[in-house]
């Protein structure tokens, strides 16, 4: 497959080939990683989305350093309209909406990234172990997944947040506890088919240990779907966290998040619409951008699956 890619798009043929025999030397060889990166960089929608994502990260983490108001600053007057000093107005308690949004985006991003990282790590390890060892480990894993599937995440998250604390990292942990199953299933499926292949058999014949086979032979061959699903897990986590916080069952004050901001301000939809549309636009662009990046990554890792989208 790598050769086909080289010929079709990766290979830049030297403009002055001396002879047929030297043509291969003139072709620049690229590693799999370089090919993927190249395809991703050429995916226009994904690159635009990546730009949006970077902008949101800067908005969340660099923005508060530059912006004049602090998100906890309640010295401004309540419910001011949009103006030069308060581009997005102020809230009921006189907090500057822009500063609040920066802080909320930051927490939402932090939660989503931690959830995705944890879910991917747990999912890949469990999935690969189950798919590679089969038998008892596999059965145990699938039963655990069955178990987690019948308990509504929203209820567990609510109980945990009520019982322990509504800090952002507790919310992240609960979300991760339910997010790893999807990745574990995909990893397991791929491991099942990969471990039938000769190179795994060869590695085992050479005496490679199970961890070595999993991390050196299986995982690098699944890196595409793992990356794509990790990205999609970020998008899901952003929306789930927002939904939980909106119900008042997620992140609790003094921490804030995009969901909390919507919860506190959606009552003003008709009178002061900007207080709703501000967090709404940030939330939707964040989740759209991450979804499109995931799509671009999928196309980059597996050009055969390229889907045309509007």
């Amino acid at each position: 497959m790598a050769n086909i890619n080289l010929a079709s798009e990766g290979g830049v043929v030297n403009s002055a080939p001396q002879s047929d025999a030297h043509e291969f030397d003139a072709t620049k060889t690229r590693t799999q990683g370089q090919l993927v990166l190249r395809r991703f960089l050429r995916h226009r929608l994904a690159m635009v989305s990546f730009g949006v994502f970077v902008f949101l990260v800067l908005f969340a983490f660099v923005g508060p350093l530059i912006w004049t108001y602090d998100f906890e600053d309640v010295s401004s007057k309540a419910y001011q309209p949009m103006s030069g000093t308060h581009p997005l107005g102020t809230t009921q308690v006189g907090k500057d909406m822009l500063a609040l949004l920066m802080r909320g985006t930051g927490y939402s991003l932090q939660i989503a990234l931690i959830v995705a990282a944890l879910a991917t790590a747990i999912g890949v390890i469990f999935g690969a172990l189950a798919g590679y060892l089969r038998g008892f480990v596999d059965t145990a894993l699938m039963r655990l997944v069955d178990l987690l599937l019948i308990i509504p995440q929203i209820a567990v998250a609510a109980i945990v947040v009520k019982g322990f604390s509504g800090s952002w990292y507790v919310v992240a942990l609960v979300l991760a506890a339910f997010a790893w199953m999807q990745i574990a299933r995909i990893t397991r499926g791929e491991t099942l088919s990969l471990s039938q292949r000769e190179f795994i058999e060869a590695a085992r014949a050479c005496g490679a240990t199970t961890p070595r086979i999993i991390f050196k032979h299986l995982v690098p061959n699944m890196i595409g779907s793992i990356t794509v699903n990790a990205t999609l897990a970020i998008a899901t986590a952003v929306l789930t966290e927002a939904a939980l916080s909106f119900l008042g069952l997620g992140v609790q004050p003094p921490d804030t998040s995009l969901g909390v901001i919507v919860l506190e301000n959606y009552g003003q939809f008709l009178n002061r619409p900007w207080l709703f549309w501000g967090p709404f636009i940030v939330l939707v662009s964040l989740s759209l951008a991450v979804n499109f990046i995931g799509d671009g990554l999928r196309d980059a890792f597996d050009p055969r699956q390229t889907k045309v989208r509007a």
Binding site: L247, V262, L270, F276, F280, L283, V284, S287, N291
Partner: peptide, 29 residues
Amino acid sequence: DYLATSTAFLMFSMPIFCVAVIVKNYGIQ
């Protein structure tokens, strides 16, 4: 097809509660 696909993609990325809030408020109007 493009219209349906992009609408579906947008709805996918939309937080459920925002959809509900928007629908409710346009209902009030």
